[in-house]
Simulated scan of single mutants.
Amino acid sequence: MNVRPRYFIETKDSLFFAVNTYYHPEDAVIAFLRYIPCVDGDRELNGTFYKKVDSNQAYDYIKKNHPNYLFDWNVENKKMMGVPLEDIKEIHSPIDRLKEIINDDSPNPFYEKVRLLANIFHNEANISYDNMGITGSTLARLEKVDSSDIDFIVFGLDNHKKARQLYGRLKDDKNSPLDRIKGNFWNKVYNKRIKDGSLSFDEFIWYESRKNNRGLIKGTLFDILSTMNSEDLSIEENVYYKQIASMKIKCKIIDDSQSFDTPSIYQVSNVEILEGPSINIEKIVSFTHTYAGEVINNEEVIASGVCEEVTHLENGKKTYNLIIGTTRESINEYVKLEKSPLYL
């Protein structure tokens, strides 16, 4: 079954889940609940109103209505959320949805911007339409023309890098429809992404501005998201995870090649334990897009999250990661420069 991160699962009772991993158990797809039918919802599809749910609302809804959607898999003492195969109505592909929009000639101003963005990446970065897609509310056909962002996906690590580099060149080109984020758009993005005091407003802008993975196209926010193709995958499937304790470390980034993926992965060295168990951390792994591409090779950083033990079942070897984003809101979980970039 071809299901990758940022694909959507629609269930037989009209729930929409976002896929968030490359590997799944044999009888289910690991995914997180995003949209539920609701009489007072703010978006509509085929006569049914929907609302978007946060982490707490998602878990509460599933516990009440589909407790079997929370199950044991490969993480000790943690229930995974996912959809049993027999309850899947449709798997929504971001690639197919983008092609549908490209071929849609209706005068929809939101779709016109999606098409324009895809054509720019295709024509100027030489990225195939087969390696581009659209996710989020647009994939579920629940977008709001006047306020939804464009959650644009580029498949393949090299393709994603090309897209970011192109945007970095075009964002200050007066002849390009692509623009930097500015004004009140920064408030919208900051309030959506930062739910605690991990980054100040000005720090957030500094980090986001150098990533080149988020911008404006004719007044609409867009993200350039990354999902790996099969040739990029180096993830070990036969592993077992155990969350140990909260942890805070200081370390050096030595490999950021997968820092924009889902999850974002940073290889680290020179680890100093600031809080938590005395364990050698090899990777920082972020499941929240907020900290994708946040830091780069050779930077000294501070990271706060949860220590995770990884057991490699083939040989029994244990390694350890620092996890960021154990909830969607990622409270007190972050990675950032050791010293504020505002004072460098």
Rank of each mutant, 00 (worst) to 15 (best):
2 N>F: 04
2 N>Y: 11
14 S>R: 14
28 A>Q: 08
30 I>E: 15
30 I>S: 09
40 D>W: 09
47 G>I: 05
52 K>Q: 14
53 V>Q: 05
61 Y>M: 09
62 I>A: 07
70 L>P: 14
70 L>S: 07
77 N>E: 15
83 V>I: 11
84 P>A: 06
85 L>M: 11
89 K>Y: 08
95 I>V: 15
111 Y>I: 10
112 E>R: 08
115 R>W: 04
118 A>F: 08
119 N>L: 06
119 N>Q: 13
120 I>M: 04
128 S>L: 11
138 T>C: 13
139 L>Q: 09
141 R>I: 02
141 R>P: 06
141 R>A: 11
143 E>Y: 15
150 I>K: 02
156 G>H: 05
158 D>N: 15
160 H>Q: 14
162 K>D: 11
166 L>E: 11
168 G>W: 03
178 L>S: 02
180 R>W: 03
186 W>N: 04
197 G>A: 02
200 S>G: 06
204 F>W: 04
204 F>P: 11
206 W>E: 10
206 W>K: 10
209 S>E: 13
225 L>H: 00
232 D>R: 10
234 S>T: 14
239 V>Q: 10
241 Y>H: 15
247 M>A: 04
248 K>E: 13
248 K>T: 15
250 K>Y: 01
255 D>P: 13
262 T>P: 09
263 P>D: 12
267 Q>I: 15
271 V>K: 08
271 V>D: 12
274 L>S: 10
277 P>H: 00
279 I>R: 08
280 N>H: 02
290 T>Y: 02
291 Y>N: 03
295 V>P: 10
296 I>E: 14
296 I>F: 12
299 E>C: 04
306 V>A: 01
312 H>Q: 09
312 H>A: 06
312 H>Y: 13
313 L>I: 14
316 G>P: 08
331 I>W: 00
332 N>C: 04
333 E>M: 00
334 Y>F: 10
338 E>D: 08
338 E>Q: 03
340 S>H: 03
342 L>K: 03
